[in-house]
């Protein structure tokens, strides 16, 4: 079996990829994808942790995370369409109408 530390390292690597994507990309679609990668990294870490204690809880949590991520994306895509309607772009740098 692959050691637990390696599994968590892979998950952390995935998480870092998502985080870097979120911080560097300015296109809303790519940013949402990056958030998804981060969520899946967390879910993967749950599966790894569940396997470490030989419990099913981790996998159950994975299913929950998957469902929640799907619900989140549904709302996110609706907002994406609204954004394109109002701003005529999906570039998040253009989101600057709220200020003091």
């Amino acid at each position: 079996m692959i050691p637990y530390e390696i599994q968590i390292l892979v998950a952390a690597f995935l998480f870092a990829i998502g985080l870097i994507g979120l911080l560097t990309r300015r296109n809303l679609i790519f940013m949402l994808m990056s958030v998804e990668i981060m969520m899946n990294a967390g879910a993967f870490a749950f599966v790894a942790s569940g396997a470490r204690w030989t419990q099913a809880d981790g996998q159950v949590m994975f299913l929950f995370v998957l469902t929640v991520a799907a619900a989140e994306v549904a709302v996110a895509l609706a907002l994406l369409i609204l954004m394109h309607k109002h701003f005529k772009t999906v570039d998040t740098n253009q989101l600057n109408s709220l200020k003091n």
């Binding site: 749950f46 790894a48 942790s49 981790g58 949590m61």
Partner: peptide, 10 residues
């Protein structure tokens, strides 16, 4: 949060 909880659980 998910990642943190996973580590706490692990």
């Amino acid at each position: 949060l998910v990642f943190g909880l996973a580590i706490m659980y692990g």
